[in-house]
Lab assay of single mutants.
Amino acid sequence: DHWHVHIDGERIRLDGASEEFIRTLEELIRRGTDARELKEIIKEYLR
């Protein structure tokens, strides 16, 4: 599956992301997590 998110107007691909990770991201977004912080979390995950 190819997922991607838009954060700060930037399109970030989440290739190979699990549904669990996507749900976690959605939860963080709902909580109002800062965009820079979200991008860091995604970069760490994709390593």
Rank of each mutant, 00 (worst) to 15 (best):
E26K: 14
E40K: 13
W3H: 07
R36W: 14
H4I: 13
W3Q: 09
L14T: 02
R30I: 08
W3N: 08
E19P: 13
I42D: 00
Y45R: 02
H4M: 07
I7L: 09
L28A: 07
R13P: 13
L46D: 02
K39Q: 08
D1Q: 12
I42H: 00
D15H: 11
I41H: 06
R30T: 08
I29T: 03
K39L: 15
I7Q: 01
L38G: 00
T33N: 03
G16N: 11
F21N: 01
R31M: 11
R11W: 15
R31N: 10
K43W: 14
K39Y: 15
L38Q: 00
L38Y: 01
W3I: 10
I29W: 06
R36H: 12
I41F: 13
Y45H: 05
A35W: 08
I29N: 01
E44Y: 07
W3F: 11
G32A: 04
R36P: 06
D1M: 13
E20Q: 11
E40V: 09
E19S: 12
T24A: 12
F21V: 03
R47A: 13
D34R: 08
E27K: 10
I42C: 02
W3C: 04
G32D: 03
K43N: 10
H4Q: 06
F21L: 06
A17K: 02
R23I: 07
I12V: 09
A17M: 08
L25P: 00
S18F: 04
A35D: 05
I41N: 01
S18C: 02
G32H: 05
D34W: 04
R13K: 09
G16T: 07
G16E: 06
E37V: 15
T24Q: 13
L28E: 04
A35G: 09
E26S: 11
R30N: 08
E37A: 13
I22P: 00
I7E: 01
R36C: 07
R23C: 04
R13L: 12
K43P: 00
R31G: 08
R31Y: 07
L25E: 00
R23S: 07
I22V: 10
A17Q: 03
E27C: 09
T33S: 07
L25D: 00
K39G: 05
E40G: 07
I42V: 08
K39T: 06
E44L: 09
E27A: 12
H6N: 12
T24D: 07
K43I: 12
A35E: 07
L38S: 00
L46F: 14
E19Y: 14
H2Q: 13
T33M: 12
R23Y: 09
I7W: 02
W3V: 10
A35L: 09
G9Y: 04
S18V: 05
R11D: 15
T24V: 11
H4Y: 11
R47S: 12
T33C: 06
I29M: 08
E10G: 03
A35Q: 06
E19G: 10
E20P: 06
I7H: 01
R36I: 10
H6A: 08
A17W: 04
H2R: 10
I7S: 02
D15T: 13
R30P: 00
I22T: 05
I41E: 01
G16V: 06
L38D: 00
F21K: 00
E20M: 13
G9S: 05
R23H: 07
R47T: 10
I42M: 03
V5P: 02
E26C: 09
H4A: 06
R31F: 09
R13W: 15
T24C: 08
E20L: 12
G32V: 03
L25W: 04
I12G: 01
L14H: 01
W3K: 13
I42A: 01
D8Y: 02
E44R: 13
R36V: 11
T33E: 04
H6W: 11
L38W: 02
E37Y: 13
L28I: 06
A17Y: 05
W3L: 12
F21G: 00
K43R: 14
G9A: 03
H4S: 07
R36F: 11
